[in-house]
Design a binder for these strands. Sequence first.
DNA 1: AAGTTTTTTAATCAAATGATTAAAAATATT
DNA 2: AATATTTTTAATCATTTGATTAAAAAACTT
Lengths: 209, 209
Amino acid sequence: MAKPKKNEDVSAEERIKEAARKLFTEKGFDAVKTRDIAAEAGINLALLNYYFRSKQKLFDIVMIENFERFIKQLIPILGNEELSLDEILTQVTASYIDMLKLNPGLPFFIMNEMRSDSNKLQHVREKMAQVKARFLKRVEDTLLKKKISQANMAHMMMNFMGLIIFPFVAQPILMKVNNINKKEFDSIMEERKELVPIWLKAIMKANKF
Amino acid sequence: MAKPKKNEDVSAEERIKEAARKLFTEKGFDAVKTRDIAAEAGINLALLNYYFRSKQKLFDIVMIENFERFIKQLIPILGNEELSLDEILTQVTASYIDMLKLNPGLPFFIMNEMRSDSNKLQHVREKMAQVKARFLKRVEDTLLKKKISQANMAHMMMNFMGLIIFPFVAQPILMKVNNINKKEFDSIMEERKELVPIWLKAIMKANKF
DNA sequence: AAGTTTTTTAATCAAATGATTAAAAATATT
DNA sequence: AATATTTTTAATCATTTGATTAAAAAACTT
């Protein structure tokens, strides 16, 4: 009965994971049905449970990978002691925007699952906490050395994320309101690679801190 | 069998709507079960369908009300021809932050439902178009006079929303990352009422447009 | 108070959904 | 080629879930 297994370019297991990543990222845990994932991956439903035991376990795996993608790339830049604040801003901004153009749904997905602080994330919490801890230490060390006070760290982080990540989170709304298509949106994001660092520096100069 | 109806301070219908608003805003359409809403409202499941016909219809009602809350307050400010750009920035920022402190889940909810591009949002689209028209007429006039091109409108809208709305969208993450509680978060948002308009002006001055 | 209408409930239905099972098909091993 | 192992499938189960129904309870009308 079974379909042939050879002459596939990607294994069934990998196809399931990618289908799950796509759908979970698009629609969130509850909105995605295991049958949707099976259909998207072009495999039988039972196969999903054969490889991953349960929907929850599959989600956990995708979630951890997504989260790692989200912050991993920042570590080498933030950890580089030799970069000036200017250079850090420029590099991190460009790197982030590049990644988000490839994974526009990622921040939303992460925030979504973070917000509904349910037990869905209980399993992945610890692993994420580890990655996060490392990440934060780097960020704070780096920025504190650059004479940005702890009290203003929160503001600067909000500004940084707001200017870079928010457009992707609100992409559907922004495209409609500004009457632009995906290509034009991406082009605007490309412009922001140069603009956001300039603006962030302007912000830092503009007020008390 | 029925429970007494009198000496309730709020009608069952209203309690259902408020329970639905709370849960939908927190968790999104698919994650919320009609039985959750019934339990939260303290009523029998059948009563939900008696009053609202279906989960979808109940959602639509809550959704429209939420969205109206989200944009309603902008109209009087944007419509006031006597305000300068500075004053508009200051007032809209303060007004928005006040509203978001009361409804921190609102922008996320709207973006979430906007993203899953279902037909749920037909009404919302129209409302959005109205605000856009008004917003553009008022702000574009002002900004065009200040030689801000149409092309840069998109950037400025992203900046404005990013600096004000994003912190609320990412609130759970930001609270964890910066190790602050709700009260401290709100206090930071209070600071931003004054800071964001300053920063937005700094941004406008900082680059080519 | 009797009768009428509105509100609320318990019980139930039908479809959707996550998961399991036993067996078929493909692949690997000898 | 015969046998064992891995991969895949169809069929099925048990819960969950949105919705309906018939009737009880409360409120209203006369």
